[in-house]
Nucleic acid binder design. Sequence first.
RNA 1: GGUCCGAUGGCGGAAUUGGUAUACGCACGACACUUAAAAUGUCGCGUCCGUAAGGGCAUGUGGGUUCGACUCCCACUCGGACCACCA
Length: 888
Amino acid sequence: MEDKYNPKFIEPKWQKFWEENPDLYAAKDDSKAEKRFILDMFPYPSGAGLHVGHVESYTATDIYSRYFRMRGKNVLHPQGFDAFGLPAENYAIKTGIHPQKTTEKSIKTFKKQLGSLGLSYDWSREVNSSDLDYYKWTQWFFLLLYKNGLAYKKKAKVNWCDSCKTVLANEQVEDGLCERCKNPVRQKDLEQWFLKITDFIEDKVTRGPSSSKITPGLLSGLEKIDWPESTKMLQKNWIGRSEGTIVKFLISNSPNSPNKIPNSKFPISNEISNSKIQSPKQYLEVFTTRLDTIYGCTYCVVAPEHGLIKKYEESIKNKAEVEKYLESVKGKSDLDRTSAKDKTGVELKGIKVINPFTNEELPVWVADYVLSQYGTGAVMAVPAHDTRDYDFSIKYSLPVKEVVISLEKAKNQKSKISAKGGSASGRKNQNDNLKLKTKESFTDDGILANSGEYSGLTSEEAREKMAEWLEENNLGNKKINYKLRDWLVSRQRYWGAPIPIIYCEKCGTVPVPEEDLPVKLPTDVDFLPTGESPLKYSKSFQNVKCPVCGAKATRESDTMDTFVCSSWYYFRYADPKNEKKFASKELIKKWLPVDLYVGGAEHSVLHLLYARFFTKVLHNLGYIDFDEPFLKLRHQGIILSEDGRKMSKSLGNVVNPDDEVKRWGADSLRIFEMFMGPLEDMKPWNTKGIVGVYRFLEKIWKLQNKIHLTSNSLNKIQNPKYQIPNKSQISNDQNGKLDILLNKTIKKVTEDIEAMRFNTAISSLMILANALEKEEGVYLIHYTLYLILLSPFAPHISEELWNKLGHKDLIFKEKWPEYDSALIKDEEVELVVQVNGKVRDRIKVAADISEEEAKAMAISSGKVENYTKDREIRKVIYVRGRLVNIVI
RNA sequence: GGUCCGAUGGCGGAAUUGGUAUACGCACGACACUUAAAAUGUCGCGUCCGUAAGGGCAUGUGGGUUCGACUCCCACUCGGACCACCA
């Protein structure tokens, strides 16, 4: 009786076996073999369990891991759980069930689901960021940063979510809304802990024992790592480095204004020089990347929060109007403020500044399109060359003055000028031209005009020269600005790692001594959010003795952003049980950095930037000798639902991997998800598609009945340890074709796995299976090698069939086959014969045919002669093994 | 608005990186097996003309480079992702 492929039976059987033999997948700390650290982003154990996106990336790393194990590498392929976080706490608020309980339960479900997929994790190294033994080290990291001046507390305007009642990092605010609950975020002043990530943007001299070394910064470090270009670009943009200049605009009518401007290039106007006041000069500092446009500056704008307004309160003549405006801005949420396309502002009447280059007196406006946090919170407005300033100038009828013209325009004018033969008329012409063009701003670099001695220079040259002049005269300096802010890590939440700080009335801020770690999360808390951390109301937690003086003191009641926990977890896998250190130096050296990291692109900035920061800190302090944690990074693409939309509970179009495993088996689900398309691509689910993969596995199952022995191949059968037949063996062998195909498949599958092109690897396995199936009988050697190639993709069926062949050992203990390069070359090839690039014939020739012979054969081909008749052959192009192109 | 990416049959996608476009899978159609259906197997499956042999046209649109372009260059159209008043 023929047995049928039955994943329901064989998959649990092998999963049980693997579970009972955890050593099979364990990474060996003491092995001398070359290591491979292959890592998945550890999941947040949500109550919803695993989704198909998890399956996609976990299968990819599993295939990769299994492949490298078979290549004799010492593979570290661990998994763990990012277990702290808001959802569990929110659930606790709703139900009163402690987050620890729900988290434990979710983790159990997750592990069961992961097990049902046949993933080859080394569970002996599991980490859980909410475990005491884990967050002890998260706190240790905080102290490390604190002790090195990289963690500090300051009062700051923070993003506050009224619904979550907590602070959010800039990165967690989307469109002015809370990333999690979509509530509008508002600004609030709070004392908060920050980590100094901005210290590591640029390269940095190390502080560790070898202080002559450099820690490459977050920017330059991107250059040497194998990450998707788009991800690197996102990080670069997020860091937002821009080179510019600080320019000091003299506040001309301040109570302390000087009577003249030193070093000005222009005679000072009477109005200003007659001013009587003679005391320290007051300046408005602006930041600009377009210093070359400064002759076109027609006013300045400060942010509503800018200090100037308060300082010169008395000089402002339209105080009521300004105050009203400031009030209206304050009422706006971040969303209103950034989504408003219409720019608003009010002139600060009575305040004037002086452009250091032109000596013109300019009005100052306040407007909320200028951001207080960026640069100096003040800008010079050049309507002719900045779209925002242009919009604003149109609305409030402010002058527009063009001072940069495009290269082509400059050329045209030059020819006009020379045609007219006089520079005087030329200049006039130029001015006319400038006045005409006020429909929109020209924001590109170009050639300067109307810019005094700088006219005629390119923008780039002008920026250089102008900055020099400013520096010489103490009126400004070059400055690099970044969008990236320091990382705010305080959260007014319970379910996170407590910040290990104690506040003593006498001693002030005191770090918890290392030997007192961990600072344990108390259990006597009420989860209902109050705007303060629930820890604040736990007596057992709050009241402590000051570790320095022993006096009564209180603990910091905020917990850390969960991204702190996930910034270092990959180190812990190297040495997960260490009680003395976050990981020992030797084991870090053995396993890290991570060779392959796979996870969602949504982490392109947050987690991946923070993790790099932590690694750079450790490098800088001499703990480790590498400075990038993840050498190679790949993202799995989002799997859409069948209708092309995103899967979501509310749309009811979520595919549950459990259902698919139940129906088709884990092997089918694994292969199907890999076969859908390139790993990184976004692709829709196709319910019917998995059937094809199931049929493919069924086909392989049935092939076992075709294994047969011919007299020709008897030697192979008698020797159960297979070997690839050599060329002389196959020359008499009817199945020589299959040997060639098998070798080609070995090559293709090997190369594709290494490049993570799993979809084409599977396709080539299907082609070989189809070819084997067409044969009346299949050689054992072919089948044996086939199963080995299949095993990383479909571990259960491969192991079962291997076992049925009578092997005592497991298939994944087998060596990955090498292909025979002599056997991947066809003896005969099909040459395409083209006439003028169009295919007209195909001829079979020996693979090693000479160029002359090939050309001659092609030309004499009957079909070709129809086209070449009566025409002269001008040229013949030969591409070895591919084609002959006859040009007539 | 900016930046980046992409566009190939009815669908997911392949194409040795400038050399046979549409591999592999799904869907579909015909046939075989069956009382019937399912399953399975065989064949077909870009499009147009043609009984056929064969030929024309096709990789979003238009142009260019080349003996030869899905692949390189220019312009445009559409779609997606990210950022979004960062001076």
